[in-house]
């Protein structure tokens, strides 16, 4: 009988066996077990069509988007250790993130990652369209995907304000002023005039949608806090739920699309 290698010895320990409940995935039974028995890998089917595995077909853009989302979550949590969302501290904390912290590229990874995620999510949509993968039975999941795309843009947009520099507040000023022009709901939009009784203005800059977004009449400290919460808690939670729905439906709607 041949001498057992170190790897085999490790595999026989109680600790290893308690974590991985099957042998190495070199035969059919174990390959099924590794995918089905692992909470992270069981997003995947155990077997799938060869066309759906090829990079030339999938471009892996959806997967990459999800990966970047995870990377952004990790770097974002790290950034939150140092960042205070107040007009007094925000800008200085951003500088501190670069100067006072070892490995001062965390903010860079977060920011470039956010841009990269926008690009990958667009390309993912492009690929899904070009392969007709929105066609029945995947119509609903395409809709979920579109909403996820919008939320990705909103995540990126709300995060844009947080450095509290000139680039940030003017980009948000331009963006949030569009909300002002929302028909009927914004005080600068069509229809707001109709909701006026004599001198009493029903839709004004103190109660329209932009006020709700900014918690004020212009981009100030309450807006910073509001965007911070939206960016760090609210939208990521919604995105997390929708990602779960999106992945679930990919599996339930017949996996990665392939010719019928």
């Amino acid at each position: 009988m041949a001498e057992k290698g170190l790897a085999d010895k490790v595999r026989e320990t109680q600790i290893w066996k308690s974590i991985f409940r099957h042998g190495p995935p070199d035969n059919a039974r174990n390959r099924a077990a590794v995918v089905a028995g692992n909470v992270f890998l069981h997003l995947h089917p155990i077997k799938l069509k060869k066309s759906g595995v090829k990079l030339g077909y999938t471009w892996c853009m959806g997967g990459l988007t999800f990966f970047i989302f995870l990377a952004l979550t990790v770097t974002g949590v790290l950034l939150m250790f140092y960042y205070r969302p107040t007009a007094e501290y925000a800008f200085n904390d951003i500088i501190a993130l670069r100067e006072h912290v070892p490995l001062g590229i965390m903010r860079e990874i977060h920011r470039w990652g956010a841009h990269a995620m926008v690009i990958t999510v667009w390309l993912h949509m492009f690929r899904v369209f070009m392969t007709g993968s929105y066609k029945p039975p995947r119509e609903f999941n395409w809709g979920v995907g579109v909403i996820l795309l919008v939320l990705t843009l909103l995540l990126s947009f709300t995060g844009y304000l947080l450095p509290w520099d000139q680039l940030a507040i003017w980009a948000i000023a331009v963006g949030s002023n569009m909300a002002k022009a929302t028909p009927f709901l914004g005080h600068g939009g069509p229809g707001a005039m109709l909701a006026q009784i004599g001198d009493f203005v029903m839709v004004s800059d103190k109660n329209d949608v932009r006020f709700q977004l900014l918690a004020g009449r212009f981009v100030g400290e309450p807006a910073l806090l509001r965007f911070y919460i939206l960016h760090c808690v609210f939208i990521p939670l919604v995105v997390g739920v929708l990602i779960a729905v999106h992945f679930w439906r990919v599996r339930k709607d017949g996996g990665i699309s392939a010719p019928l």
Partner: peptide, 9 residues
């Protein structure tokens, strides 16, 4: 709740 009564502008 998203409309504060007082605001420090």
């Amino acid at each position: 709740f998203s409309y504060p009564n007082v605001n420090f502008e």
